[in-house]
């Protein structure tokens, strides 16, 4: 059997989701953002809810997410995505409203909006990309930067006496009564991507079933900011990020424990 016999439309088992358009993404080679964009697109297509989805893009590397997924998007000021999501959800309660934010957006300038949006408990979904660094602006220290991790603004490693401790904001959000589902996932292997997809699906289902705020943290790599190759960045993340940000469900009050 030749390759031409295998490559036929009826044998197709995996392809880029249709709502992800052909525009080349501006992300660095190997960036986790692309995988998460793809997962969102796949889940929306599987749920057949593309026409009823409103996404909110952050400020950060993912600021141009509206260029790559063909759904309705709003652009929020830096850190204000959850506030905007709550407003949109209250005006259009039947829409699936989600924010897509990085750690500088969600855990630094947007801390107040994030915490109060989660406390108000409107059914929005927050996709939180945590790579421990400010990627877009050139790799400065973020609140989530690990202890001892070197960045452009802490070249000798993060000193907790000077810079404080890594902010585990997802653990804070777990404690709020407005959140119904808080999970931490990763996209570094095929198995992890499948798990993350289940988590995003569950979060989106909570959204349309009006159950409360769902937070999906994706522990990600920033190989440019970390100054590593994509494969080395994945190894570094497993060794260093996962002990500080352990994967798994932190909270699930929806009564449906299918997504593990």
């Amino acid at each position: 059997m030749t390759i031409e016999d295998i490559i036929k439309p009826e044998n197709l088992v995996y392809k880029k989701p249709d709502i992800m358009n052909d525009r080349p993404m501006h992300y660095c080679p190997g960036c986790s953002h692309g995988v998460v964009h793809k997962l969102i697109a796949e889940v929306l297509e599987e749920m057949d809810i593309v026409e009823d989805t409103i996404g909110i893009t952050p400020v950060g590397c993912a600021v141009f997410a509206y260029n790559y997924l063909d759904i309705d998007w709003e652009e929020a000021a830096h850190g204000r995505a959850p506030a905007m999501a709550v407003a949109i959800k209250r005006l259009r309660p039947n829409k699936l409203v989600f924010t897509y934010q990085g750690d500088g957006d969600l855990a630094a300038i947007g801390t107040a909006e994030t915490i109060h949006a989660c406390n108000r408990g409107d059914s929005i979904t927050i996709i939180f990309i945590n790579n421990g660094i400010y990627g877009m602006t050139g790799g400065q220290m973020a609140p989530t930067t690990l202890e001892g991790m070197k960045t452009a603004t802490c070249p000798y490693g993060r000193n907790t006496r000077l810079n404080g401790y890594p902010l585990k904001i997802t653990n804070l959000l777990k404690e709020l009564d407005g959140t119904c589902y808080v999970t931490r996932q990763s996209v570094h292997t095929a198995a992890a991507v499948r798990k993350a997809k289940k988590a995003i699906r569950k979060a989106f289902e909570n959204n349309i079933n009006q159950k409360g705020v769902s937070v999906v943290e994706i522990v990600s790599t920033c190989n440019s900011g970390w100054k590593l190759s994509p494969e080395k960045a994945n190894e570094w993340m497993e060794e260093n990020m996962f002990p500080a940000y352990p994967l798994g469900d932190l909270k699930d009050t929806t009564g449906d424990n299918q997504a593990k």
């Binding site: 995996y14 692309g34 793809k38």
Partner: peptide, 13 residues
């Protein structure tokens, strides 16, 4: 699944 840019289509028979 792991391709960040969605470049790969997979066929199986």
């Amino acid at each position: 699944i792991v391709c960040p840019d969605g470049c790969i289509s997979v066929y199986k028979v």
